[in-house]
Computed example of a mutant assay.
Amino acid sequence: MEQKKLAGRPRDPEIRKRVLLAAQRVYVRAGFSGMTFEAVAREAAVGKPAIYRRWASAEALMDDVLSSHVLVPDRSMRGEIRPVLRAIAMSVLRLAHSEEGAFVLRVSSERALHPKLFDQYFERLRSVIHFQNRALIVEATSRGELVENCNPDILIQTITGSVLVSALMGFTVAPDKDEEGAARYCDDLVAQILRGVASDPTRR
């Protein structure tokens, strides 16, 4: 009589998501050198064999974390440039005060140590986020809202850089803790920047 093959233990369909999130959190706290399978397994509350079955090394796990860490731009932003710039500033401010933002900053700080791992990640960030926002600046310039020699890259960097420094230095709080204060900061920042690049003095 033919024997039936015993079914193995079913895999947890959520385990990959849990491990990737755990790896992200461990990395933010301890850096790549501290992102061991043991630490990740403890954070994810799974056994180490469950990680070894899916990833051959810490590098492979980090590569999966980076590939799954997608910051989706707000494609609804269109129209007059002032509210668009405010929306960009608020988006960066929310990111700066989030787990995702902490991850981006940690990757940035270790980029020179692990260029093969991290360079492609930043290339993707630029192509997805920066260049969409850049296109919005170019559109506004073509409509005559901004001066003709406005540099779209510098304008976006001015906004994002100002927001990130402000968050890092503790000059702003998370929008989910003080929505009005965050909105006021973004309004003031955009107004200050537009004084230098708006083509129409009434828009400044």
Rank of each mutant, 00 (worst) to 15 (best):
F118K: 03
R16M: 10
E180D: 12
R54E: 12
R11M: 03
T160S: 08
L66M: 15
R126N: 15
M77C: 06
S57F: 05
C150D: 01
V147P: 00
H97Y: 12
L164A: 13
L20K: 06
M169C: 05
R126G: 13
Y185R: 00
L95F: 13
I88R: 01
G144P: 02
R54G: 07
E148K: 07
L125D: 05
E179D: 14
S162D: 07
L189G: 00
E100A: 15
S98D: 12
D187V: 00
E14Q: 09
F32M: 08
V72A: 15
R106I: 13
A50G: 05
Q3L: 11
I15R: 05
L71I: 15
R111V: 14
E139G: 02
Q3S: 09
V147I: 12
A102G: 15
S91N: 09
R54L: 12
R195H: 12
L125T: 11
D119V: 04
I193K: 01
R29E: 15
Y52L: 04
D200N: 15
S67Q: 11
S108V: 09
T160H: 01
E38N: 08
N151D: 14
M77I: 14
S91E: 10
I156G: 00
G161L: 09
A183E: 10
L66C: 11
K177P: 02
I137L: 15
R204M: 13
R184I: 10
N133A: 13
T202S: 12
F131G: 04
D200T: 06
S67V: 08
Q132S: 07
Y121R: 05
A96K: 04
Y52W: 11
A182V: 02
F103S: 08
A45D: 04
N133I: 00
Y52R: 12
G47S: 09
L95W: 05
I137E: 10
S91V: 00
G170K: 12
E139Y: 03
M90F: 04
A174K: 14
L95H: 04
M62Y: 01
A50H: 01
M1W: 11
P115E: 06
A23H: 07
P175D: 06
P175M: 09
H130W: 06
Q120E: 15
S33W: 06
A96D: 11
I154Q: 13
E59N: 09
S166T: 06
R53I: 02
T202D: 12
T172E: 01
E59H: 03
E14G: 04
L155T: 01
K48G: 01
I15D: 03
V84G: 01
P13T: 10
I81F: 09
Q3A: 14
R184S: 10
S166N: 08
P83D: 10
T160P: 00
D63Q: 15
R143M: 11
F122W: 11
A7E: 13
R42A: 12
V70S: 14
D119Y: 06
R106V: 14
A44Y: 00
E179P: 02
Q192F: 13
G47W: 00
H130R: 13
A7W: 01
A182F: 02
Q120N: 13
D12W: 09
G181L: 00
E59I: 02
E148M: 06
L146N: 01
A44I: 01
V138W: 08
L113E: 14
R111T: 13
F103D: 10
L113Y: 04
A102Q: 13
V138Y: 03
R143T: 06
G144D: 02
A45F: 01
S166I: 03
Y52T: 10
I159V: 14
E2L: 12
D74S: 04
T141V: 09
